[in-house]
Every structure is written in C-alpha cells, then in structure tokens.
Design a protein around this nucleic acid. Structure first.
Length: 433
DNA sequence: TCTGGGGTCCTAACGCAA
DNA sequence: TCTGTTGCGTTAGGACCC
C-alpha cells in the first residue's frame, strides 16, 4: 500500500514527463529477426485460414494497402506476393519480456498496454538520465542493443498526448516508399494544443467508427472542432461519460496516471470455427476445451472467477452473451462447464454458430476470498465452513451437495427466499423473460 | 472468400434489501 | 403495514483498444 501512495503522490505532481513506447511492426519485426532473408519483402503475420485476419504487416506490405485487422483473404488479393506467416504468440511473449526488462531498467513506473507498447512515467528518472527526449533516445538505444528491434517513442506531459506523439514518431508507409521516421517526437508543455487541434478527431482514444459518425454528424472533424464544441450537446449525443471524456482530451487534459502491475480483470478464450456449428454435442465439446483453457490460466494466475460468461457469434454475426455468477470463486474446468452448460442449452444453435467464447470475470485472489464470508451468502457458508473451503478450487457438485441448489444461483438471489418453481437461474435466465 | 482474439469500460434494465 | 426511494449487484449488450 505504501508503494502505491508514493506512486500516486509522485505522479500527480503538476509537471510530469510521460513516454509512450511503441515497437515498430512488432510481430513482423520479430519474424524478420529470425528470418533475415525476408527483410525488404512484404510480410504479413496473422490467421492464414479462410477466416483469419492480419495481426501485423510490414511497411512493404502496407504500401499495397494491407493493414492490421483486415481479413487475410483481402490482404492476399491486395498483395499476393507477400509472405504470410501464422504468428507465434509464445515467442512474441518471450521477446516482449526482454523489451519490458529494458523499460524497467529506466523506471519502475511502467504500464504495459499490450505486448508491444507501454507508458513510462520518467518524471523521477530525469535527474539520473536527463530530459524526456534524452531518455527516449536511451530507451531506443537499449532496446536495439538488447533485442535488435526498433521502436518509436512519444514524449509528453500526459499519457494521452504521449500516445499521439509516438504515432507522429513512427515511420509512415506510402505507395512510393517508407518515409523516414524521427523515432522520437516530443509534445512540449504549453504547446499541446498546437499539436493536438489540427489532428483528425478519430485519432482520439475512444473514437471508433460509431462515435466518429456521430461527431461528423455534428460537423466535428478535427480535435480543434471538438474543443470548441458545446459540451452539453456533446453529452446529449455521446452520453455523460464519453462526452466529458472526449471534451477533456480535446483540451489536451488527461490526468490519468501510469499504473504499474495492473491486475487482469478477466481471462477469456474464444475461437472462430472454420465452418459453422449446429450440433449441440460438438458445441459442448468446444465448451469443455475452452473452459479447460480458461481454468488453467486462472489457476496459473492464482485467481478464481465469480462470474462466467458464454459468448456465441452466429453465422450472420449476431452476438449473444450469457453469464452467471456464483458465491464462491471457481477455478476448475469441471466447475465452469457445469455453470455454462445450462446457458449453452438455452441457446438456439440451428442458425449456425461461428464462434464460441468462454470468459472468467470478477476475478478474486485467494486472500480476498475470505472477505466473501463477510457478506450475503458468505454468512451462511461460514457457519458450515471448514478449512477445506479456503482452497481456491471449488467444485460445483460439492457446493450443491453441501449447501443446496441455492448456492449455485446467481449471487443476486442468494439469501433471498425465492419461489422454487421460479427460474433456476434467476433474472438472467432468457427463458424467464 | 469480408469481418480474429485478447481484453477494458460503459450503460441500461431489473430485482432485491434497507 | 404499506409504499416509495435509493443503492447495489447481476446480466446483457455495445463500443473501443491493440
């Protein structure tokens, strides 16, 4: 706790220097490192099947209009001569660990956003290493030395601007060739708006296709337009949270701090099938396999899940989710399957299922579990508690045998006397609506 | 032969308890 | 005892990010 308060006091100091480091075409660069003969050629990493998408494209491939998130099929049409690689997530994780080791050699205040990018709060490291730009060059030098990989670094007084600055620091692919990149780009204090206001409004964090369409409908195309726009209208159109959020960003304001060691909020696994599924038994087999993958990661992270979700994407891309919460966290595949099985049975598979996903949310660490006994269901369980319940592994059968059917109902129903003829799964049951 | 897989955060509706 | 209010947890869905 003491460390957290020191971090927050330090980071709320009025003048911060934040770095956003983004590896250049990370997955592709890692592949080129172990296959140097591919350098200079268009290379695409991503799902290779008929339903795959591009995870990363080399600058040479981008010249042909290939970008991440595009379907692999379209990428092949645009650039048939590209080398398509399936991707090796485990290897990328290993290389990412080396990159993050470099970040931690500069400052402990490192917040990873993904395998290949992170925020660094270097406000406290400047006495040792020099100003923000000097540190940015030092980070680049150390990463090249340690991994032979290139990165781009944005330097700014807050996270949001640092993120935009790193984009400005990146190489840019055009049809004619790849423009050289500065590698480091700084947004100076008191010059934030000069940098920010000419940018397209879609470059703001939180503006995706849907929000962009609404903003364009209001006549807003640049960040400058947004900054001048009436806040009350913005809130009316975008909602309270997003309206205020974007309005603040447009003024260059972002008070969020660099948060090291953020715990995962959910653990999930999902798969798109090469052909659509209509058979319940087959769907059930996939459910078991994915539950096992999720449970295994939960145990590896030493957490139990109080909420389990099932996600189904139909052949026509309609998406449905079903979830169930339990009083005590689960960590076994058996328990997850027992909870999700009834939800899967309630879903009509006849339209064809393209994707099934399983995720664990409401994650609880073993030492937090005892706090469950302070509330609701916990009181009842506690009276029957013995030492074995401190285990993180709780099988549903065992809960049912020892505490009755109500113990596996949603926590909202716990402690309430409900009509036994009412829905087994409470208000979330689609059958009960 | 359009549209992955890993996540986070927000909102609305609803039921229940105080 | 009844009713309305408020707050909270759960559930479902949507938008967004890399």
């Amino acid at each position: 706790m003491a460390r957290v308060s020191i971090v927050s006091i330090h980071q709320t100091a009025s003048l911060r220097t934040i770095l956003h480091v983004d590896m250049d075409m990370f997955y592709v660069a890692v592949e080129l490192r172990r296959n140097p003969q591919l350098r200079g050629r268009p290379v695409v990493v991503g799902g290779n099947g008929s339903r795959g998408v591009v995870a990363a494209a080399s600058y040479e491939a981008r010249r042909f209009g290939v970008f991440s998130a595009m379907s692999s099929a379209q990428a092949k049409r645009l650039c048939p001569q590209a080398v398509f690689l399936p991707g090796d997530h485990d290897h990328y994780c290993d290389v990412s660990a080396d990159v993050f080791e470099v970040f931690h050699s500069i400052t402990p205040l490192v917040e990873g956003l993904s395998l290949d990018e992170a925020f660094l709060d270097v406000s406290g490291a400047m006495r040792l290493f020099g100003d923000g730009v000097t540190i940015a060059h030092e980070v680049r030098r150390r990463i090249v030395q340690s991994t032979q990989l290139a990165c781009s670094v944005g330097v700014a007084p807050n996270k949001f601007l640092a993120k935009l600055a790193s984009i400005a620091a990146k190489p840019f692919a055009t049809r004619e060739g790849v423009l050289p990149s500065p590698g480091v780009f700084e947004v100076l204090p008191n010059h934030e708006l000069e940098f920010l206001h000419p940018l397209a409004v879609k470059s703001l964090w939180g503006v995706g296709p849907v929000t962009l369409e609404k903003l364009v409908g209001l006549g807003i195309t640049t960040v400058g337009d947004l900054a001048e726009f009436d806040l009350s209208v913005l809130v009316a159109v975008l909602g309270n949270s997003l309206g205020h959020h974007l309005h603040e960003l447009a003024q260059g304001n972002d008070t969020s701090v660099v948060e090291p060691d953020r715990d995962a909020k959910s653990i999930g696994h999902e798969e798109t099938f090469s052909s659509d599924i209509t058979d319940y038994q087959l769907a059930h087999d996939h459910l078991v396999r994915m539950s096992d993958a999720v449970a295994s990661r939960c145990r590896h992270n030493d957490v139990g899940a109080r909420t389990l979700s099932l996600k189904i994407k139909y052949a026509d891309f309609r998406l449905v989710t079903r979830s169930v919460s339990v009083a005590l966290p689960v960590t076994t595949a058996q328990a997850i399957v027992r909870l999700l099985e009834p939800l899967l049975r309630g879903i009509d598979l006849s339209a064809g299922v393209r994707l099934i996903g399983v995720s664990a949310r409401n994650l609880i660490e073993p030492d937090q579990q005892m706090s469950l006994f302070d509330t609701g269901m916990g009181d009842r369980l506690a009276r029957n508690l013995d030492a074995s319940w401190t285990s993180t592994t709780v099988a549903i059968d065992e809960i049912r045998d020892r505490f009755g059917e109500s113990a596996i109902k949603p926590a909202s129903a716990l402690g309430h006397e409900r009509d036994p003829s009412a829905s087994k799964w409470g208000p979330g049951d689609p059958e009960s609506k």
